[in-house]
Nucleic acid binder design. Sequence first.
DNA 1: ACATTGACCTGGGAGC
DNA 2: TGCTCCCAGGTCAATG
Length: 274
Amino acid sequence: MPELPEVETTRRGIIAQTEGSQVKQIQIRHHQLRWPVPKELEQHLPNQVILSVTRRAKYLLLATQKGTLIIHLGMSGNLRLLPAQTPAQKHDHIDLIFTHGWLLRYHDPRRFGAWLWTDQPIEHHPLIKPLAPEPLSDAFNLDWLAPKLKNRRSPIKTLIMNNHLVVGVGNIYANEALFLAGIHPKTLGNQLTEKQLAQLIQQIKQVLSRAIEQGGTTLKDFLTPDGKPGYFEQALAVYGREGAPCLVCQTPIEKIVIGQRATFFCPNCQKAVH
DNA sequence: ACATTGACCTGGGAGC
DNA sequence: TGCTCCCAGGTCAATG
């Protein structure tokens, strides 16, 4: 479900009531997520104070004195802040219960998400270490990306969804960024000109920033932690718009499949290279 | 090292 | 109404 803007929206929604708060207890109803939820969470989290709530790529990081709770929302996960007495419903797999009478509830029908623990510096964690720079930081620039794509023969759409090259961009924003940059999604990495690449980097930053400002994209059931939807869906130019007129040139938007993922583009604004 | 495919899950909608 | 099939916002692991 969530790409970077939805994860960032979640972070902002939970920070006021989690950062600086003391954990009373963690209740795990379903241990099987993407990976088994480690027992260390039950051992270490009670009585710990959440020192910070940060984000790295699509991971949420809740730091304590003993270690860091790593949360990934997968395809269908969300976090809600609720009064501690609120009865759990279907797919409410984990509660992080605070001493102040509220809980952070993890809901994830497909269970592709993750709750993990590390007592090492977070940048050493095997899932975090290989990640590309934060897309909204200055470190994500042409000097980073150009050498990485130089010898790549995969479609650029696939490449910008690869965490080791670009983080935070999932299927929605990959489609949107390529449209904004005027690049055909099938263009191979090594076929992009430096000018196109600079444009793509700029548009990735732009589309992610704007989506964060709008509280993310709500397609099915994404809700911010206080239960409100995101408002970016109405700003999507190509995603989910097969057959609808391009917002720039009125050409019907086309849908194809690249790397087993639905891909939307304007055949006029995003010309294929020959 | 890189490219491609399968795997993990559930729910919703289309079509019959 | 109910069945089957397909699709879905992620990404790791296995395979060539």
